[in-house]
């Protein structure tokens, strides 16, 4: 059983651990939506300031959805989506001894993928990337976005579908 001081977000060490385990995802969440790093950083600060101010009212279980709601509301209808730019973690792809044609094709494919991702509706892109990059389960994303798991599955399905259509040039 946890003691009162361990479960209260007003406790600084509890708050810091909440910060460390959630700030990166809050950042990504906003970045996938709007493609703006600066605003994503601001959103992290704003969301956690709000959480700190309301630490007595928000239970640790509610802290996550509180953070995403605050971050989401911050730029709702305010910020225009910019292009989301993503890097590739696996640099070894480029250093293989594949033929120049294949590498060229690979680079072409990446560009197509990036364009296709940016063409997705904001909620599909965010959901898809949270799953692919951050490894979030459908249920977790559903909690962040405040929708059902089924709605998340729908978004993933539609996102994959339109990505393929864009890339295959249908």
């Amino acid at each position: 059983m946890k003691t009162e001081s361990n479960t209260n977000i007003c406790n600084e060490s509890v708050f810091n651990s909440v910060f460390k385990s959630n700030s990166k995802t809050v950042f990504n969440f906003i970045y996938y939506k709007f493609g703006n790093e600066e605003k994503a950083n601001d959103a992290v600060q704003e969301a956690f300031v709000k959480l700190w101010e309301n630490c007595a009212k928000v239970t640790p279980e509610k802290a996550k959805s509180f953070l995403y709601t605050v971050a989401n509301n911050l730029y709702l209808n305010v910020l225009k989506a910019e292009k989301v730019r993503l890097k590739y973690a696996d640099k070894s792809l480029k250093s293989t001894n594949e033929s120049p044609e294949f590498i060229m094709e690979g680079n072409e494919f990446k560009e197509k993928l990036e364009n296709a991702l940016n063409a997705l509706p904001e909620n599909q892109r965010t959901t898809f990337l949270l799953n692919r990059i951050d490894g979030k389960k459908y249920a977790e994303i559903a909690e962040m976005e405040g929708v059902s798991v089924k709605a998340i599955e729908k978004r993933i399905h539609l996102a994959l579908k339109s990505l393929r259509e864009k890339i295959d040039g249908i």
């Binding site: 973690a89 993928l113 990337l129 951050d134």
Partner: peptide, 11 residues
């Protein structure tokens, strides 16, 4: 597509 997105990284 899935293989490519597995390699994606956020800023």
């Amino acid at each position: 597509i899935v293989a490519a997105t597995d390699n994606l990284k956020s800023p």
